[in-house]
């Protein structure tokens, strides 16, 4: 059975999401901590969430306003979490 181009693309996104989850888990298992680790883990989480919203939810085909709202959500929530963690580290 031949996969359509959009199905193949969704499959690639799925594989990437699983790979990034494994990366997050491995960082946790390695006991890594600190400012840069926190920023990398947060960035991975926000990129993964954005990928689900953009490609799985098909927001990439909608008006730029909806994509902007979703992007701003991840930027603001991720940004404020980062600020809180930096305060904790200080």
């Amino acid at each position: 059975m031949q996969m359509s181009q959009s199905t193949l693309f969704s499959t690639c996104i799925f594989v990437l999401l699983v790979a990034l989850t494994f990366a997050t888990f491995s960082i946790g298992e390695a006991g890594m901590a600190g400012k840069y680790t926190m920023l990398i883990l947060l960035a991975i989480a926000m990129i993964k969430s954005q990928m689900v919203a953009h490609y799985f939810m098909s927001l990439h085909q909608t008006r730029p306003l909806w994509r902007l709202i979703m992007l701003m959500y991840f930027v603001i929530v991720g940004g404020l979490i980062a600020v809180a963690y930096l305060i904790g580290l200080a």
Binding site: L17, T24, M38, L42, A45, V77, G78
Partner: peptide, 15 residues
């Protein structure tokens, strides 16, 4: 799904 994707590293991993 994407809410859990944020929740997992936040509560289980980031320290």
């Amino acid at each position: 799904d994407f809410l859990w994707i944020i929740l997992f590293p936040l509560v289980y991993v980031i320290r």
